[in-house]
Design a protein around this nucleic acid. Structure first.
Lengths: 222, 222
DNA sequence: TCAAAAGTGTTAAGACTACACCCATGT
DNA sequence: ACATGGGTGTAGTCTTAACACTTTTGA
């Protein structure tokens, strides 16, 4: 089967920058390419748009197929389309970024990926295509949005302590925050509620567990 | 001549939301479609991506071809691609927005447009495709960015008075600003310099004309 | 000399930052 | 009993918001 058009058409793909925080580092998910071009190199998960699926659906589908991840925060980032970014044919890539909760970071290796691994964002391997550029932009967007929104909460599992949130914000932004001020800010947004449960993790006072009031709403505030 | 692929490929277009301010109203440029689908309806300027041009180039080229406008602020907005947004074939539209300086709003009617006109953003006609959705998003981005950046200066001609800038900000955001505070903020960004010239427009004191220190840098500040 | 927009500082309120001690628990 | 992270309030600084009169010009 083949498809014919009166004018040349580019191929369209989505690529997804999946972030998580693990071992006090901001990490990005990469897969090792099984096929040419760039065979053996590391690349962002992603793939070609099906002709009858929406772009968002494509991003979610590719993410699931290649990594097993699903139901995580996923947002369109930017569209990349330099004429020579893929040697096979003209390819337009609609980039997304996603935030993976801290727990349950086990990956099922998907069909198109020889291997999938988390990399420290400051120690990335050589990347296929223009994926270094995509990751750079995604990181800028992530840190910018976390500065004035509760986007960072999308990294959290169902329930979490305030110290865990603070630690996450510190790791992503690279700067420390005052404990009392951070808690004042976060609780002041009124998007969290106490679960009533506490979390005990060592020889010290247990911490209150919180959860999102409304899991779908990112409250944006200064 | 025809082009054949092993898998179906979508068509890729750019569409541009061109803003200006005229008669104390925020306006958007629309063209009347000469061809089906949506023949006779109003639509955003834009068109198909050439197979060997960059996306940015395509947006700038289409803008120039259809409206004669060139060398104005132009930035990628978002990519739209609902499967049924175009009845002809699957079309991915990479939306841009542009800011047209206040003066020189005369348009040369371009080749693909039967007619091009400015519309008050609050009184748009029935639009082709999903262009109403694109305009809505563009407006949100414009107002959000103007709140914390000097993006609004991209609406200004080469030289302008501070009152003109203030008036523009008020029209776009829909809310009045304190004259002294506005001037303090704007001058405090240190992106303007006095030209030395003054502008006399009526029976009152003439205003100092300013221009951008560095026409390429959008200074982003709170 | 009048009308109309340009230009100019100060004060009060609110937001943000810095900072230190007691609490609850496990070992 | 001690070591460890959890939890809490206040005072000082900085930023933002509110506010009114004088200046310069054309008619």
């Amino acid at each position: 089967m083949s498809y014919t058009y009166a004018y040349p058409h580019p191929a369209v793909t989505t690529d997804i920058v999946v972030f998580t925080v693990e071992n006090n580092k901001l990490r990005v998910l990469l897969i090792q390419r099984k096929l040419d071009p760039h065979q053996g190199n590391w690349a962002l998960p992603g793939g070609f748009l099906d002709i009858d699926e929406s772009i968002d659906t494509c991003a979610a589908r590719e993410l699931k197929e290649e990594t097993g991840l699903e139901d995580i925060f996923l947002e369109q980032l930017y569209t990349f389309g330099a004429p020579d970014r893929d040697p096979r044919e003209r390819v337009i890539s609609i980039a997304y970024y996603a935030l993976m909760p801290l727990q349950g970071v086990e990956l099922k290796s998907g069909s198109d990926a020889a291997d999938a691994r988390w990399f420290d964002i400051d120690a990335l391997p050589k990347l296929a295509f223009d994926h270094d550029e995509i990751i750079k932009l995604a990181r800028e967007r992530l840190t910018a949005k976390m500065d004035y929104s509760t986007l960072g909460l999308m990294f959290m599992p169902q329930s979490f302590t305030l110290s865990e949130v603070q630690s996450l914000y510190e790791i992503v932004s690279g700067q420390e925050r005052d404990k009392r001020n951070f808690r004042k800010w976060l609780l002041g947004l009124e998007c969290l509620i106490e679960t009533g449960e506490k979390k005990s993790v060592g020889a010290h006072r247990p911490a209150m567990l919180y959860r999102l009031k409304d899991p779908d709403n990112l409250i944006i505030t200064k």
